[in-house]
Simulated scan of single mutants.
Amino acid sequence: MTKYEYATVPLIVHATKQILDQWGEDGWELVQVLAMPEGNLVAYLKRPRA
């Protein structure tokens, strides 16, 4: 059974692609992006645990 580790990452609207590309380069997969009530965006990511 694959085990995962998870991360939550705040996203800056004008740099979303660059932030997600960097995390993707490190092996993280985007699971979901949520808009918080304050208007902030948060990305939820996962990757297999080594």
Rank of each mutant, 00 (worst) to 15 (best):
M1E: 01
T2D: 12
T2S: 12
T2H: 06
T2W: 05
K3H: 05
K3R: 10
Y4F: 15
Y4T: 07
Y4C: 07
E5G: 08
E5K: 13
E5P: 10
Y6S: 13
Y6A: 13
A7L: 14
T8D: 09
T8Y: 06
V9R: 02
V9P: 00
V9S: 07
V9C: 08
P10H: 12
P10E: 15
P10I: 06
L11S: 09
L11K: 04
L11I: 14
L11G: 08
I12F: 12
I12D: 11
I12R: 15
I12W: 07
I12Y: 12
I12E: 14
V13D: 13
V13N: 11
H14G: 02
H14T: 11
H14L: 04
A15I: 07
T16W: 03
T16P: 02
T16K: 08
T16R: 10
T16Q: 10
T16H: 03
T16I: 13
K17N: 08
K17H: 10
K17S: 08
K17C: 04
K17E: 13
K17T: 10
K17M: 05
K17G: 15
Q18A: 13
Q18H: 09
Q18I: 03
I19G: 02
I19R: 01
I19A: 03
L20N: 06
L20K: 03
L20Q: 04
D21N: 14
D21R: 10
Q22K: 14
Q22N: 09
Q22E: 12
W23C: 01
W23G: 00
W23Y: 15
W23M: 04
W23L: 09
G24M: 01
G24Y: 03
G24D: 01
G24A: 11
G24C: 00
G24E: 01
E25F: 00
E25D: 04
E25G: 01
E25R: 07
D26I: 00
G27N: 04
G27Y: 02
W28V: 06
W28Y: 05
W28S: 03
E29V: 02
E29I: 04
E29Q: 08
E29C: 06
L30Q: 07
L30S: 03
V31N: 05
V31P: 02
V31W: 05
V31C: 06
Q32K: 07
V33L: 01
V33A: 01
V33S: 02
V33N: 01
L34Q: 12
L34E: 11
L34P: 00
L34I: 11
A35S: 15
A35W: 01
M36H: 08
P37G: 08
P37H: 05
P37V: 05
P37F: 07
E38R: 06
E38M: 05
E38W: 00
G39S: 14
G39E: 13
G39Y: 13
N40S: 15
N40P: 03
L41V: 05
L41R: 04
L41I: 02
V42G: 05
V42H: 06
V42I: 15
V42N: 09
A43K: 03
A43V: 09
A43Y: 05
A43S: 09
Y44C: 03
Y44K: 06
L45R: 02
L45N: 03
K46I: 08
K46R: 15
K46G: 11
R47F: 13
P48I: 12
P48T: 14
R49E: 11
R49T: 11
A50R: 10
A50F: 02
A50N: 09
A50D: 11
